[in-house]
Computed example of a mutant assay.
Amino acid sequence: MIKALPYLQEICLDLSGVTSFDEYPFDIPSIRNLKSLSFDSNVTFIVGENGSGKSTLIEAIALLLGFSLQGGSKNFQYEEGQNLPPLFRYLNGIKSFKQPKDFFFLRAETFHNVSTTLEELYAQKKDVLLKNYGIDLIRSSHGEAFMAVLANKLKGRGLYIFDEPEAALSPSRQLAAVHLIDSLVKKDSQFIIATHSPILLAYPNAVIYQFGNEGIRKIDYEETEHFMVMKYFINNYHEIISEVIREDIREP
């Protein structure tokens, strides 16, 4: 029996037309060595150190699916010109026979731009914006706006791409986000999320891909650096803090 979910089941990367692997983003090991990536679960996490290529791939997937690089729903198209990251032009997606009804790309870095543009577009129809998000995005904190997306904007049966959604969320809000993500998964939704959050990564039955200099590999939650470092820190925080603030090891 063919599965209806996930909606985006696999991406394939064909770099045969790339002329130089010494330039961004093709100089990133995880991107240069990527052939395909399967999405076998309704929730897929992409993790890795800064610069490992996780956000680069998330952006490319979003562009492949027709989102603006700034983020938002597929109805939101921000004027971006021709300077789009090139990776998405080398991507192909394998999709389910069943199409999602809802779409959203939450990119923490640029969500304020989306909020500002929406405020301008709906200047005369603020009731519509309030109906969609439940709050005034511009006059709310970054974290409140992120939670409003999860709680009010996303309706289910959706394909949702998130890039570091924890950036503006406190630990308790991250736990609340896990609850909201789960409620949307139960409404036949798919999430692909780049994150550094050990709280989000604990979501059960998620697939976790580790990006690094050796390429990409699937790992378990307790194998992630995020889990191991946080566990070690909590159990040994006095010694660790004393060590990292020692004057003789401070950076110049």
Rank of each mutant, 00 (worst) to 15 (best):
K95F: 15
S73G: 04
L34V: 06
P85V: 07
S96A: 06
D14W: 09
T19Y: 06
E49N: 12
S115I: 03
S73A: 01
L65M: 15
I94R: 15
R107W: 02
T117Q: 14
A62E: 03
S30N: 08
I28L: 10
D22R: 08
F26R: 01
S141C: 08
R89H: 12
G48K: 02
L8G: 00
S38M: 04
L63V: 05
Q82I: 06
G53M: 04
L57D: 01
F97N: 14
L137W: 02
E10K: 15
S73N: 01
S16H: 07
E49S: 14
T56F: 08
D127K: 14
G53P: 01
F146Q: 13
V114I: 09
L15E: 09
L87F: 07
H142V: 08
A60W: 03
E10H: 13
A4M: 10
S41Q: 12
L130D: 12
T117A: 13
L65G: 04
C12R: 15
E59C: 08
R89N: 12
F39C: 01
L65Q: 14
V114L: 05
N83S: 10
K98Y: 07
L130P: 01
N92S: 15
I61M: 05
P6A: 05
F111T: 11
D136M: 04
A60I: 00
K101T: 04
I28E: 04
I135W: 11
S41L: 01
S55V: 00
S115R: 06
I28T: 03
K98S: 11
L65K: 15
L121K: 11
D22S: 12
P100A: 01
L106F: 15
G72I: 00
I11N: 07
T19M: 10
E59N: 14
V43L: 12
L15I: 13
D136P: 09
L64S: 14
P100I: 01
S41P: 00
G51K: 01
D27L: 10
I28G: 03
I46T: 02
L84V: 02
K101I: 02
E119S: 13
P100G: 03
S52W: 08
G53C: 05
M1F: 10
G17F: 03
S115E: 11
A123N: 11
P25T: 00
I31L: 06
G134L: 13
Y122C: 05
M1E: 12
L106R: 07
L118A: 08
N75R: 11
A123D: 13
S41R: 13
T19W: 00
Q99E: 15
R32Q: 12
E10S: 15
E23Y: 06
G134I: 12
F146C: 13
Q124L: 10
L69D: 07
L137R: 00
K131C: 14
L129C: 04
K131I: 08
K3S: 11
E119G: 04
E120C: 05
S52F: 09
F76S: 02
Y78T: 10
K131R: 15
E120R: 10
